[in-house]
């Protein structure tokens, strides 16, 4: 039997919003550690790897590791039936062919439950090599969303150039070209407003803005985003999910293959 009760139900709603436009279907791999999901988009250009840790749930029971094959569009529609302040409980029997979602209002005066058929998905698992990245940029997530949206008016690719002075985002197209330079923050009192560039060596890479704009759908999950880059390896965009005390409840990570000179 798998049962997980999330008091902050809005977290699961936001997680669904962060993946539903990129992926059609995926398996939630549930184990004692938590709920994980890893899947590539249909073109194999981007990969999502997310985790909701078991200790982020009010209670969490997983008798046996199970893999729940889900049509994400359907799950997203059902989660839209939950209010932002609802408590969400997910339940599935071990040999289940269905998953149930229960939404409870804070005053427990309104309880709804929805059952959804599961899918048989072959759980192809990708090995993501641990990488020592040449550059890791930490910045406000809203700032990154703004940059990706603004530069999309110029072209379909962004060149990200990271040096010790800071990071520059550039785009060009028929309309013209544009550059956005972010300086390394000096002493910022509020950490989540800082731009921090941890650079081992300078890196310049080109990525599709279409995919980056899918990734920024995760911005409501975290006030900060980190971009990890090395020459000729996929970009890793990570939104950490922390609770109010700052303890990690999980993460949403996106990987994006670069565009290179043909």
């Amino acid at each position: 039997m798998f049962e997980a009760r999330l008091v902050e139900g809005s977290l699961l709603k936001k997680v669904m919003e962060s993946i539903k436009d990129l992926l059609n279907e995926a398996s939630w791999d549930c184990s004692g550690n938590g709920m994980c999901l890893q899947a590539m988009d249909s073109s194999h250009v981007a990969l999502v790897s997310l985790m909701l840790k078991s200790d982020g749930f009010e209670n969490y029971r997983c008798d046996r590791s199970i893999s729940l094959g889900i049509n994400l569009a359907s799950m997203s529609k059902i989660l839209k039936c939950a209010s932002n302040d609802d408590i969400i409980t997910i339940r599935a029997e071990d040999d289940a062919d269905a998953i149930t979602f229960m939404f409870e209002s804070p005053k427990q005066d309104r309880v709804s439950d929805y059952e959804m058929k599961l899918m048989n998905l072959d759980t192809e698992h990708l090995g993501i090599p641990d990488t020592e990245y040449a550059c890791v940029i930490k910045m406000p997530s809203g700032e990154f969303s703004r940059i990706c949206r603004d530069l999309s008016v110029l072209g379909d690719s962004v060149i990200i150039c990271c040096t010790k002075d800071g990071v520059r985002f550039s785009a060009k197209g028929d309309l013209g070209n544009g550059n956005i330079k972010l300086a390394q923050s000096a002493n910022v009192d509020k950490e989540e407003e800082a731009v921090v560039v941890d650079m081992r060596e300078a890196v310049t890479l080109t990525f599709s803005l279409r995919y980056l704009n899918f990734f920024t759908k995760a911005a409501p999950l975290s006030s900060q985003v980190s971009l990890s880059m090395s020459e000729d390896v996929p970009l890793m965009v990570e939104y950490k999910i922390n609770d109010k005390e700052g303890d990690s409840k999980g993460y949403v990570r996106y990987y994006l293959a670069p565009k290179i000179e043909d």
Binding site: M40, H44, P258
Partner: peptide
């Protein structure tokens, strides 16, 4: 022109 790579050349199925 720049060509979009896929992840298949970077990540491998377990």
């Amino acid at each position: 022109t720049k060509v979009q790579k896929t992840l298949d050349t970077f990540f491998f199925f377990d």
